[in-house]
Design a protein around this nucleic acid. Structure first.
Lengths: 200, 200
DNA sequence: CCTTCGCTTGGACGGCCGTCCTAGGAAACT
DNA sequence: AGTTTCCTAGGACGGCCGTCCAAGCGAAGG
C-alpha cells in the first residue's frame, strides 16, 4: 500500500495531515500544533522527521506533484484528445464540493506562496506547469499546434477563475453551470481543430 | 481633496497604507508594525483610530467598495454595452504589472478571507458582487438577458483565472495574450446578442 | 542481561503578534 | 492665564509561533 494513514509511518502521516490542513486553512495559518493535533503526536517529534516547517511544505508539494502526475497519466487512457480534455474539465465537477469549501488546491497554494515570496514558490508552480504542458499537448493533438499553449492557459484560467468564484461565493451550483459553458467552449475548439486538420 | 496621503488625516493614511500592504503581502501576513512603519506612527497610536486589526480591514474594504463603485460609474460613460464590457477587460491590461506582481486585489483578498473564515468575508465578497451585477446588466443590455448572469460569471472567472496564472508565473505577457482571447470571446457574444435582438 | 539505536516526549527558549494603558504634548477655547 | 480636548508616544501584557533540547521509551542485537 502506498497510502492509507492508519498503518503508514509517522513521516507519511505528517505529510498527509499537513497536506489536508494547508489546503483547508492555508500554509501560513496552519501551525505545528494544528498538524500535531491531527496526527496525534507531540510537537517536538516533528523535528526528528523534518528540520523545519518549510521542509514539510516541500514534502507536501512533492507528494502533490507525484499524485498529479499519476492522475494525468491515468487520463491518457481516454480514447481521443477531446475526451482527455474533457476529463480535465470533469475534475472541476468531481471536486466541486471541496472547491466550493476551500478553492483549488493548486491555485490557492501558488497564490499564497507568491504573496509570501516563499522559497518553495517555484516548486509549487510546477503543479501548474504539469497541467499546462499536458493540456497544451492535447490541444496540439487536436490540431491546434500553433495556439496550443494559449488555449491551455485559457482553459487553465477558466478552471482557476471558476474555483476562485465558487470558493468566494460558497456556491456549488456556480461550478455546475460554468462547467457547462466551458464544455461548450471546448466543443467549439474541437470543431475548429477538425476544420484546421481537414484543410491541411 | 478626497485622497492624497501627504496632507490627509492619520486615519486615512493608515487605511491607505493598510490597503497597499494587504494587497502586496496579504492580510494575515501584514502586522501592525508593518503598517506603523509605512505610516511612520507609533504602534500604540492605532488604537486611538481603530479598535482592532479587523476594524482596519473593514475600513479598507469599505474604501475599496467606494472606489470600485466610482470606477464602474465612470465606465457608464462609454457609448454602448460592448464598449463598457471592453473597459472591464481593459482593466486587466491596464493593471497588468501589479497583477503580475500581486494578483487581483479582489480575488486574492476574498480567497484569503475565505480560507481564514474571517468575519469580513461577506463584505469582501461584495466587491465581487459589484462587478458581477454590473457585468450582468451590461450583458442584458446586449440582448443576452436570459444568460446574463452566467456570462457575467464567465467573464469574471476568466479575469480571475488570468490574474491567478499571471501572478503565479510572474508573467506579464500572459495577460496580454489572454486579454486578446477574451476580447475575441466578447466579440462573439456581442454578435450572438445582435442576432438574438434581431430575431426578437 | 545489557547495550545500542530508532523514535518519541514534553517542556524551554527567544521572538513577534495583537492589544491595552498611561503619560505627555499641542492646539482650541474660556 | 488656565483648562479642556484631541491626538500621539512608547512600553507592558499575555499568548502563540517555530525551533531546539535533554531525557525516556521499547525493540533489536550483542
Amino acid at each position: 500500500m502506498s497510502s492509507g494513514s492508519k498503518e503508514a509511518g509517522t513521516r507519511q502521516r505528517i505529510v498527509e495531515a499537513a497536506d489536508r490542513l494547508f489546503y483547508r486553512q492555508g500554509y501560513e495559518h496552519t501551525s505545528f500544533s494544528d498538524i500535531a493535533d491531527a496526527v496525534q503526536i507531540s510537537r517536538g517529534n516533528f523535528y526528528y522527521h523534518f528540520r523545519s516547517k518549510d521542509e514539510i511544505l516541500d514534502a507536501v508539494i512533492a507528494a502533490r506533484l507525484a499524485a498529479t502526475g499519476e492522475m494525468l497519466a491515468g487520463w491518457e487512457r481516454a480514447a481521443d484528445p477531446a475526451a482527455r480534455l474533457r476529463s480535465f474539465i470533469h475534475l472541476l465537477f468531481v471536486n466541486r464540493l471541496s472547491i466550493k469549501a476551500h478553492g483549488c488546491p493548486v491555485g490557492t497554494l501558488c497564490g499564497e506562496l507568491a504573496k509570501l515570496d516563499h522559497p518553495a514558490r517555484q516548486e509549487a508552480n510546477e503543479l501548474f506547469t504539469l497541467f499546462r504542458a499536458w493540456l497544451a499537448r492535447e490541444f496540439a493533438r487536436l490540431g491546434r499546434g500553433r495556439e496550443a499553449d494559449g488555449l491551455a492557459l485559457h482553459l487553465l484560467a477558466l478552471s482557476q477563475g471558476v474555483a476562485t468564484l465558487a470558493h468566494a461565493f460558497d456556491d456549488e451550483a456556480l461550478i455546475r453551470r460554468q462547467v457547462r459553458l466551458i464544455e461548450a467552449w471546448l466543443d467549439e475548439q474541437c470543431r475548429a481543430g477538425a476544420r484546421e486538420k481537414q484543410s491541411a
